[in-house]
Simulated assay, not measured.
Amino acid sequence: MILNTRPMQTPANKIIDLYERHAGAWDSDRGKSLFEKPWLDRFRAAMGCDTSILDIGCGSGEPIARYFIETGHAVTGVDSSASLIRTCGERFADQTWIVADMRRLSLGRCFGGLIAWDSFFHLSPDDQRGMFPVFKAHAKPGAALLFTSGPDQGEAIGSFQGEPLYHASLAASEYETLLAENGFETLAHVVEDRTCGGHTVWLARST
């Protein structure tokens, strides 16, 4: 008798391998126009005196981390793809880049700003719930938190390089509850912001 104890390979738990195998394609395809800039500036304005930033799911560092670096922030970028992190290190050698699974992130330090742009929403609903204590553990008092989600509760499967690309979202009311329970106040929430490529965006501050 053969017992298979490996977890079922669903689109949700294939995300890490997908991005690693297609890291070069993702970097080439990622737009560099920085349409996110108005939200990034609101995020920067919401930060306190500490302007260090933890970029959770930083990808190749383009264009978001580059913008933060060029505007004077010290950036620590985290991504599960070793190839993407290597690209970050080649582009911005004076910053800190870490290969890690965001769900188990424990850096032992706190930051003035945390961002999870187009990354956090690849997690399953339960894993998303588990991220809020991670945010709390890495946020200084007064730290800003910026992340994107889906417009409403549910799961969706997109496509990247011809393979399934998983997304999930909680209901807005649950995100609000999780933020409050972990010491964050919601500053702004826009569903499918037309000025930002249809992204659903959350901006909060640690209390």
Rank of each mutant, 00 (worst) to 15 (best):
T195D: 04
E155Q: 11
E176A: 12
Q128F: 02
F160V: 02
I115L: 11
A172P: 14
S159R: 01
R30D: 07
S124M: 02
S124L: 01
L170Q: 04
A116C: 09
I85S: 06
R129H: 12
E62R: 14
C110E: 04
S173H: 13
A100L: 04
S83G: 07
G150V: 01
L165W: 11
A204D: 03
T10P: 03
P141N: 13
G61L: 04
L40H: 09
D193C: 10
V78G: 00
A65L: 09
V191I: 15
P141Y: 10
E181Y: 02
S106Q: 09
I85G: 08
V75F: 12
L165N: 13
D27P: 00
S149W: 04
D126C: 00
S80H: 07
A23H: 12
S80Y: 10
I2F: 12
G24I: 01
L18T: 07
F120Q: 12
C110T: 03
Y67H: 15
V99D: 13
S119V: 08
G130I: 06
W117K: 05
V75N: 12
R66N: 11
S124V: 01
V75E: 13
D101Q: 15
D29S: 15
S60I: 00
M102A: 11
G31A: 11
L187C: 14
S60Q: 00
A172I: 09
E155P: 02
T5K: 04
L34V: 02
L146P: 01
D79R: 04
G183F: 11
S159I: 00
T186E: 15
R109Q: 12
A45L: 05
H189Y: 09
D193R: 07
S124T: 07
S119I: 09
A45V: 02
R109H: 06
D118Q: 13
F43Y: 02
L170D: 08
F147T: 03
R104S: 06
L40F: 14
A23E: 04
E163M: 09
F68A: 12
D50L: 02
D17T: 13
I56D: 07
W202V: 02
V78R: 01
G198V: 02
P151S: 01
P133H: 09
L187V: 14
P11C: 09
V75I: 15
L18Y: 11
A156Q: 09
L123N: 14
L54P: 03
V134T: 15
A65G: 13
E36N: 06
Q9K: 09
D55K: 06
F43P: 01
P11D: 04
N182S: 05
F121S: 07
L105H: 06
M8A: 12
S173V: 13
F121Q: 08
T51Y: 00
V99M: 12
F120E: 09
S149T: 15
D193E: 14
G183P: 15
D193G: 10
R91P: 03
A74C: 05
R44G: 00
G150M: 08
M8E: 14
A143C: 05
F68W: 15
F68Q: 11
R21V: 03
G24N: 10
Q128Y: 02
Y67K: 10
E163Q: 14
F132Y: 15
T71E: 13
H199G: 00
S173N: 12
Y166P: 03
I16F: 10
P11L: 03
A204M: 05
G108Q: 08
I69E: 13
L107E: 04
A12M: 05
A188T: 07
L170V: 04
